[in-house]
Computed example of a mutant assay.
Amino acid sequence: MASNTSLTGVALVLALALAVGGCAVDGQSTPGALESTGTVPTVAPPTEPATDPTTDPPDIDPTTPEPITPSESGKPVVGGVGVLISNAGWTAETGVTVRGYADTIDAAATCTLDLSKAGTTRSVTSEALEGPTTMSCGELIVGSDALSSGDWTAVLSYKSTTAWGSSAPVVVTVP
């Protein structure tokens, strides 16, 4: 039983020597081997960089709210929004019909179609309708009796208490 204990002790000493960083063969140290000094080297734990929790990140003004987009929250955008004419055309029966939408969601808003030609403007306004991701302007019509022949420029505008915008102009030809 005594020989078992001494073999276990020798194995433990050998395992510790190898774990410390190397071994010696014929009196020669291999790379990583430590000379015996009777002390075990210690390594200090890594330190984290100091941060000051009282400083704000640069270039952020906490008093200015960030604009909210419908894709993030489903709430109205504060400020300018994109407005798009999705369809514009003329028929003899109805006149100029324009359809479009605003890239926001709002509780109450209006859409206005302005048709202009050579200093003359015809306007019509309708209530915007809330859709799943946009506000639809529906169908805005300027009757054919209010329009003379020629190229009319259509601009669709959107306005609510929190958001507004106008489309790019679209030319509609009245024969």
Rank of each mutant, 00 (worst) to 15 (best):
M1A: 15
A2H: 06
S3C: 04
S3W: 09
T5I: 09
T5Q: 08
G9W: 13
G9Y: 12
G9I: 14
G9D: 13
L12S: 13
V13C: 02
V13T: 11
V13L: 04
A15R: 12
L16S: 03
L16Y: 02
A17F: 03
L18A: 12
V20E: 07
V20K: 01
C23H: 04
A24I: 01
A24M: 01
D26I: 06
G27V: 05
G27K: 02
Q28E: 10
S29Q: 14
T30N: 08
T30E: 02
P31S: 15
A33G: 03
L34N: 05
L34H: 10
S36R: 07
S36Q: 06
A44I: 00
P45W: 00
P46S: 01
E48N: 06
E48W: 04
A50Y: 01
D52F: 07
P53Y: 04
P53I: 05
T54Y: 03
T55F: 01
T55N: 04
D56H: 08
P57Y: 13
P57V: 13
P58Y: 01
D61Y: 13
P62D: 04
T63K: 05
P65L: 04
E66H: 08
P67F: 00
I68D: 07
I68F: 03
T69D: 05
T69L: 11
G74A: 00
K75Y: 05
V78G: 02
G80T: 14
V81I: 06
G82L: 10
I85E: 15
A88F: 02
G89K: 09
G89C: 09
A92D: 15
Y101M: 03
Y101L: 05
Y101T: 04
A102M: 07
T104R: 09
I105E: 02
D106T: 00
A109F: 08
A109V: 08
L113I: 14
L113R: 02
D114Y: 05
S116I: 14
K117S: 12
G119R: 14
T120I: 15
T121C: 10
S123F: 05
S123E: 11
S126T: 15
A128D: 01
E130L: 03
P132N: 12
P132W: 06
T133Y: 15
T134Q: 13
M135T: 09
M135F: 10
S136P: 14
C137V: 07
E139H: 07
E139L: 07
E139C: 03
L140G: 12
I141W: 01
S144W: 12
A146D: 14
A146I: 06
S148Q: 03
G150C: 13
L156N: 01
Y158P: 01
K159W: 00
K159I: 03
S160M: 12
S160Y: 09
T161Y: 05
T161Q: 10
T161V: 08
T161N: 10
W164A: 15
W164L: 11
S167M: 07
A168K: 13
A168H: 04
P169N: 02
P169H: 02
V172E: 10
V172N: 09
V172R: 09
P175M: 08
